[in-house]
Nucleic acid binder design. Structure first.
Length: 395
DNA sequence: AGTGGTCAAAAGAGAACCTA
DNA sequence: TAGGTTCTCTTTTGACCACT
């Protein structure tokens, strides 16, 4: 059985801007996540008249929909599910959809609307002007058809999707915990990279590794296919040391010339964007050939006989995470210069201790690999279930 | 000619009312 | 109350200059 969205929700409640103040919580699109849950880490407080608060206060089980926002790559119409205690309203860029609980299970409706956004249905209801994108909410509510099985079935479907979400979140959580574990092992074994509490030898990075950048490749030398050519942004995204889908390429001949002249990044070398206050350092783990833009990507040719590349990755990550702005310089923005990188005082513990650390990290990396696999599987499962629920097949 | 450093334009992202 | 714009801050990157 199908029904129109308008028949199973109350009249949408529009948001309120309010005035400067600190009386009630106001949820904005910043508080939306792409996974359909609210992010309450940055909720603003505003003043709103008492009668408005009474009329528009969010209730548990409400669905908040984004009316204005999105981007060229992301359609407008995201939804989040509200199940908080306390007084919350939402702002003008959003509206509240309140399910009629005798007809529809709120969680079920939420998942369906989430799928609508995910699978591009909201795109048919958006009004694109020059700037931001607006959702034609009235049309959406009046025209949108919803598969509506009996309440009991809806509840079961919502439960299945909840379980799939929980599984996915648990795996995600596991991945962050592995990262934290790796970080805490580093700090426990070596201490703060600036303080050097264990008084190990310090050497200039330049004395133990090759430090520099790539040879310049000019825009007109880039081609449509060939060897991947990465810019700083992409290097920063290559967090697991494996290639992402490239946009730019150089010819194989060009690559061979560069290989001859400067060498090319090898397994165990480190790359980092020069603008990198959060310590995104890439340890290369692929043999697939690629090259990268000079100047914005710094290249550390690790000499493993002097220093272990896993150890150095974590040393620099910790150092930059806490001290980037002391080391980087620049007028418009802080940027790590090659000279500054060369001069970094690198703590060099005995190599066997570094290797012990690397062994532990490799184990963690293996576990992470497994967790990543699981995450992919649980995401596929969730998507598959969502797809089915959306088509009314999950009955 | 090859590198490194700097500058600032361009692009992107996010937040905030106002008006018809 | 629906629906459109602009500002500002951040990030990315091309261009250029200076030095070797």
């Amino acid at each position: 059985m199908k029904t129109f969205l308008k028949d199973i929700i109350a009249k949408p409640i529009t948001g309120e801007w309010g005035t400067d103040g600190d009386e009630v919580n106001v949820l904005r699109t910043t508080n939306f996540t792409n996974s359909g849950v609210l992010d309450l880490s940055n909720v603003v407080k505003r003043n709103i008249a008492e009668n408005k608060v009474k009329q528009k206060q969010l209730l548990r089980g409400d669905i908040i929909i984004e009316k204005s926002g999105g981007s060229p790559t992301q359609p407008v119409g995201r939804v989040v599910f509200f199940e908080e205690e306390g007084v919350y309203l939402c702002n003008n860029f959003t509206s509240v959809l309140r399910p009629k609980k005798d007809r529809v299970e709120p969680k079920y409706l939420h998942y369906l609307l989430y799928a609508n956004h995910r699978f591009g249905v909201t795109e048919m209801f958006q009004n694109k002007t020059t700037g931001i994108i607006n959702l034609q909410l009235t049309r959406y509510v009046n025209k949108l058809e919803i598969p509506l099985p009996p309440l009991k079935t809806q509840q079961r479907i919502a439960q299945i999707l909840d379980d799939a979400t929980a599984l996915r979140d648990k795996t995600k959580q596991l991945l962050t915990e592995y990262d934290l574990l790796a970080q805490s092992i580093f700090l426990e074994m070596f201490g703060d990279p600036v303080i050097n509490p264990k008084q190990w030898e310090k050497r200039l990075l330049n004395d133990i590794c090759g430090v520099g950048s790539s040879r310049r490749v000019f825009v007109n030398e880039l081609v449509d296919e060939g060897i991947p050519f990465y810019r700083g942004k992409e290097i920063g995204e290559l967090s697991v040391g494996k290639p992402i889908n490239p946009d730019l390429f150089i010819t194989e001949d060009h690559y061979n010339v560069l290989k001859e002249a400067t060498g090319v990044p090898k397994i165990g070398h480190l790359l980092m964007p020069s603008i990198c206050p959060d310590g995104r350092i890439l340890r290369i783990e692929t043999e697939d050939p690629f090259y990268f833009k000079d100047g914005r990507v710094l290249w550390i040719k690790v000499n493993e006989s002097n220093i272990n590349s896993y150890y150095l990755t974590f040393f620099l990550r910790e150092l930059f995470r806490t001290n980037y702005y002391n080391i980087a310089s620049g007028t418009t923005f802080a940027e790590l210069k090659i000279v500054a990188l060369k001069k970094i005082k690198t703590i060099v513990p005995p190599i066997d201790i570094q290797n012990q650390f690397a062994d532990k990290i490799t184990l963690i990396e293996q576990q992470k690999e497994l967790a990543q696999q699981e995450l992919k599987e649980s995401e596929d499962l969730f998507n598959c279930l969502l797809q089915k629920a959306f088509k009314g097949e999950l009955v």
